[in-house]
Design a binder for these strands. Sequence first.
DNA 1: GGTTATGGATTTTTT
DNA 2: ATCCATAACC
Length: 775
Amino acid sequence: MALLDDLNPQQRIAAETIDGPVLIFAGAGSGKTRTLTYRIAYMVQEHGIAPENILAVTFTNKAAGELKERIEALIGEKAYRLWAGTFHSMCARILRTDGAAIGIEPNFVIYDEADQRSLIKEALSINDIDSKQYSPVEIHYAISNAKNELVGVDQFRRTRKGPFDEIAHRVYRVYQQRLRDNNALDFDDLLMRTVELFEKRPEVLAKYQQRFLYVLVDEYQDINHAQYRFVQLLAQKHRNICVVGDDDQSIYGWRGANVGIILSFEQDWPGAKVIRLEQNYRSTQKILECAYEVIRHNKGRADKKLWTQNHPGDNIICYEAVNEEEEAEWVARLIREHVAAGAARYGDFAILYRTNAMSRAFEDALMNAHIPYEVVGGVRFYERSEIKDIIAYLRTIHNPGDSVSLRRIVNTPTRGIGERTLAVAERIAHRKSIPLYDAIALAADDESLRRASRQALAAFHDLIEALRRESEHRPLMEFVRSVVERSGLLEKLRQSASAEDAGRAENLEEFVTSARRFQEQSDDPSLGAFLEHIALISDIDEAQDLENSVSLMTLHSAKGLEFPIVIMVGLEEGIFPHERSMGDEFELEEERRLCYVGITRAQRLLYLTYAHRRTIYGETRRMQPSRFLSDLPAELVDWRTELSTMPQRLLAVTEDSFGQRVIGGRRIDLTELLSRVKSRKRAGKAEAENATPQVAASGRRADRRASGRRTEDLEQAASLPRFAVGERVVHDKFGEGVVVTTQGEGPDAELTVAFRGAGVKRLLARYAKLEKASG
DNA sequence: GGTTATGGATTTTTT
DNA sequence: ATCCATAACC
């Protein structure tokens, strides 16, 4: 069985145990995806199981895509016959095919959170409920929770008591009714209704059970009750269920994820095999030790401990800053010093924080230090308002019954259909029990409205009708472009002078591009399929220059990623653990897991910082160091109070089992430089792919080479070449350029360089690593 | 119908 | 501090 020879003994057992219930505890950096892909490849290649009989469920589209790609690399094209997708996409598919059996029309639209929110508000006002007393957010939360627990409207009334739930119940009822009226399902419905379908229609369930002989679930620790039921129903017939997860990395409890589910897998599935992947290929021994010391305080976790053959590594470095600005400056300096010493590249660093608001100080400091960075996460593409507008047009055209979308665009851009005018149409819709869209056509003839209003209504209705006709015969991309133009959205943004609106206009263009991409790549390039894609994907891959930029993100976003050097910031009581979590034992444990997740992202070096004073909501507060810091074993931690940022034995660490990283102390010509950058990229990919035992073992050789090279680097930093105005130079990232101005000498010299392609940049000689261009 | 003032809240976000 | 939603304005 040569296929599995690349796996370690536990991974191998996990891959080979394909029949019956299996629980795989996959610790951080233990080669989980690798094991899963090999497992599936093995099932197909060695046991002749048809890929179409295997269902692999993930939480993200990215994870599903990655899984397919990597299996394809092992078994070729037939990997694409595998059923791999997110819970939501699988459920949407099932409901479109078989939902009619429980009264779901196949062309339903999927409402995202913003759509849900506006429906809730509508339901509140229908019930005459003061949205100040009962916030839509909280009501929505209650309803969403109920759905995750598979609690329908009637059961909600029976089981939840109290004044708030009384209100929530009334809203829930109207909300569900409105969804039906709009032929819409929200995210939570996708799961709840699929379970309902399975339970009410045994023949439908049997069909899917027959199709999915083998069921795999990734990130099982993040599963909620509805998802649990879904999996349970599908797998109960054949009992070939394999779940993978790590209870220590459960950080989405606040969204309904239930860690208890993974912990009771053995009771759910008597006779289940439990396999632990505990060998870590990512981090140094000291980093793992620290991670363990933090996580072991949690009660009720499955017993396990990661170990590694990697280098012991350097001590963790902790820094106490005076305030958040100083904290950020220290971090910026730390990054510059590592890069200047040739010990790291910008892309090796991640700054992880608890809340998005904390990114600001670090962005400022990095900007001042001319350090390239990317903020990961934040507002997603399909959630930007201008994109939501254009999507609302598409949805209205596709499904005129979708009143949430219709309301959004009826006066966007403004076309003279104000509140009063719309109210007339709504009254007609209500009186005649017809969709709002049809009522608009009638209101256009309503004598009680001014002529201008009536004309506006008629023009809007005509516009949508015209666009619908276009949608029927034009290719998707051309049609989308037409909507962008004829709706007036693009025109309005173009007329604005603000740079912000120019960016929004660009986003609209980008949206058209994404439609083209979909048209080219999908086997069903229809409007309906495109809308489904958007609803379930929620983001497009923006080409970010992560290779050469420091990554900034929340700890939550960092889950599943790894970085050579991780800097966790804001380790203060009230921030991390967050004050909202501090009163509750259960939530505190989740914060602790979040801390564990952060620590285990680090491959070579880990920095932890906190500020003595921090300004939050415009108020400066005194902070205490986080309790998580005191969990760290003292002998593994070096405290820094002032300027020095580098670890004592920097090189031993930077060059340990993670390969060559130093660019070198000698001059290199452009072609060599380019080939190095390329090979490093490849190396980086291979590393991220997965560390096999072999890699870890061979890595230690690089270790010894390291100490010899270190002195060279420092000497180089001290004796930088001099540059004259007009001289041609080469930069690691920006490529070839010409020196425009110089100021000062030596490492402090400041140069302005015009790069071909990358534009004019101001650089500090010390950090820029400029080379004279040869020839 | 669009623009500015005011009050209130402000963790994390795979779909 | 800052963002957001609603209310009171022009």
